[in-house]
Design a protein around this nucleic acid. Structure first.
Lengths: 271, 271
DNA sequence: CCCTTCTGATTACGGTACAAACTGTTTATA
DNA sequence: TATAAACAGTTTGTACCGTAATCAGAAGGG
């Protein structure tokens, strides 16, 4: 164990996340650093997706060998944990003076936008998302929004967790919809599957809408004998599973969740 | 393209999911089958997790080479898509005669239980979960619950989608909590990280509760200057981030979501 | 000064998904 | 019935992946 541990109780990944390493005093000065590695990994993920982030490629991007990274990072999983916290640094809360509802709404929407900007966040294994300084700061913002709400901290955390879950779920749906729309547009244009799509018109996007595709699939494959209720719902013209505007979808779900939280708070403070 | 395509418009993975392949007329009879492959893969995942499901291991389990699988399955991703639909076959709706709320509650809880029974479902890449016959049947059940609710089909789908999202999110949290509790119990007993844990007492589980750990980490690392609101919430004794019973957590979140849906329906039918 | 400690590189290993070519079997057709 | 086509499964090989082990050289402390 040639490691220096200022806080032995803490798992090494958490120590690394919170930058609690003490500088060793002997030996050559490191050319690489955790921050440089994480930044390079993020750049690769932004460009080519999370699957493109391999130790070899990160090392290459920095001009070093793959194994050099292991001096600064315990494993690839730890790198991913650092990456997950790194992108939380960009989250910034808009100026907020209103009530808890508008505050939590903004808090959630900012995160959804962040997920749409970096869809590879969704590909991170769940175990790698650990409480790092940036994510905890974002959690702190949420507690700030809920400061004047008079419920126990544990219930605040549960509410915040519910919204955080919703971010992931909604981000998933939207990202997936976007990908499918791209694929649809490609097919419509007769391009190969890996061709880059620069720009999609609104009409084209509506025509290639994945939920429309979903509806088509259901109509085509889900017969009324095996799927009676679905067939009933699909009867009588277009069910309109596809909505034109993503923001409409996002607002729909978020409104429901916030309504649920409001109902909880009313019930909670009533008695 | 030596493939026979009874429905050329349909992507091959969907054709395979819905078993719309026509038997070829020449050549030796296949010894393997898609069903056998999927069953073997599911058995491996149940035993050793999704990471253990490799083409080589699935082939080995069946007594064939890895490459033999590719006669029946286009790619590993397609196998995962089949796997995702396969496990949806076990979902069974309890006898339901009540209102939409109790119906949707049951619909959601059954799924959460299923996720807890097969936690590797959460490790499936999102893109692999496509509408297959079993998942669509489960969707049909949800439409059955909502049959007497008078809103457009598109809104029903949105509500169902919201609950489906919640299943994933809640399952994630619970599975993760369980894993962390195991790790905590292992540490407390001084066992190595890969030791199997047969049985955990309630006291032991409470002591090793991961949310308690989370709280400890926050107290230890999140100082009041950088994280004022969090520190405020953590001040004054135990915040009690950990709850004793998982079912309490599950009910908490689900009640909020259902309350939100109820608020939506009231608003929707009022005018 | 030496000697310890540390950095990054090299090499190697076992694993992955899968492409291509090959052997042998079944069956439709000439 | 002979032949050729279509098919199933195996073999071989490629290009990766994460990372353990080992090594040479650089830097600072005693």
């Amino acid at each position: 164990m040639g490691e220096h541990e200022p806080d032995p109780g803490l798992p090494t990944t958490l120590r690394r996340l919170w930058r609690r390493e003490d500088r060793p005093r002997r030996g050559p000065k490191p050319a690489l650093s955790v921050d440089a590695i994480v930044r390079a990994a993020a750049a690769i993920a932004d460009a080519d997706g999370l699957a493109a982030v391999s130790m070899a490629r990160v090392g290459e991007a920095l001009g070093y060998s793959a194994m050099a990274l292991y001096r600064h990072v315990q494993s690839k999983d730890e790198l991913l944990a650092l990456l997950a916290d790194h992108i939380a640094a960009d989250l910034t809360m808009p100026a907020h003076t209103g009530d808890w509802r508008s505050g939590l709404q903004a808090w959630t929407l900012v995160q959804i936008e962040a997920v749409l900007a970096r869809p590879w966040f969704l590909d991170l294994p769940l175990a790698t998302v650990q409480p790092g300084p940036n994510r905890v700061r974002w959690l702190d913002e949420a507690f700030g929004v809920l400061r004047d709400v008079d419920i126990p901290a544990a219930e605040k955390l549960a509410i915040i967790g519910l919204l955080a879950q919703h971010v992931l779920a909604e981000g998933r749906v939207q990202v997936e919809a976007g990908r499918a729309a791209m694929a649809g547009a490609r097919r419509a244009r007769g391009l190969p599957d890996d061709a880059p799509i620069d720009e999609i018109s609104a009409d084209e996007l509506a025509a290639a809408n994945p939920l429309n595709d979903f509806e088509t699939v259901l109509r085509h494959l889900a017969g009324p004998t095996d799927y009676p209720h679905l067939a009933e719902a699909l009867a009588g013209g277009t069910a309109g599973f596809a909505s034109a505007d993503p923001h409409t979808d996002i607002d729909f779900g978020l409104t429901i969740v916030l309504d649920g939280i409001e109902a909880f708070l009313l019930r909670r403070t009533a008695r």
